[in-house]
Amino acid sequence: MEHVTQHSDPHYDQEASKLGMWLFIFTELLLFGGLFIVYSIYRFLNPEAFQLAGNELNPVIGTINTIILLVSSMTIAMATSSLQKKNKGLTILLLEITIMLALVFLINKYFEWGVKFDHGIWPGSQHLINDMSKGEILFFGLYFVMTGLHALHIIIGMIIIIVALKRVQKGTVHADRPSLLENAGLYWHLVDLIWIFLFPLFYLIH
């Protein structure tokens, strides 16, 4: 029904949707890129304050979340392989694991932010503005914005993976039409890619 005026090219163009996804990933990279510019400038201007503030973060939670995301990246990559091998059951299982891992990541993040809130640290909080140096205010401002935006991308990624999972179950995504799953995978790896840089910049300051 939806193809009324679409190019009546009978075969569907897998390469085109892959290229489209990559281009979208570029825009996402530059979206975060803007934040990385802000981060690098302010870290350059306030090296000591960033170190002081960075010690507030818990590197153990950061490391656990890094490993969670890496594992989930692997499971969704495996899911695309198993779809091509026409192993529907395994594909579904792997996607479910990926979604669970994403959820665990978010729960960790929730507790991590919760601890900060308990310490009176949130954007614009009195404790932050009255008791901390300007560099620390900037650090926590960027911490909440960057990890928050990243968490938002995790949620979007989860939704996309859930849609892909439903389509795999229904059988509209299969070995000959894998684009949706492949693009969900690409998006999920993007989320991982950004975390790979967020992790050392926030949790590994000594």
Partner: peptide, 29 residues
């Protein structure tokens, strides 16, 4: 970053991140 390389520890960590991201781009993606 625990090696106390001073200003170079950021650089070191970023080199590791870059290698990781290249692996993710090449194989996972």
């Amino acid at each position: 970053v625990h090696l106390n390389l001073g200003g170079y520890s950021v650089l070191g960590a970023l080199v590791f991140s870059t290698v990781k991201s290249i692996i993710v781009l090449a194989i996972f993606m």
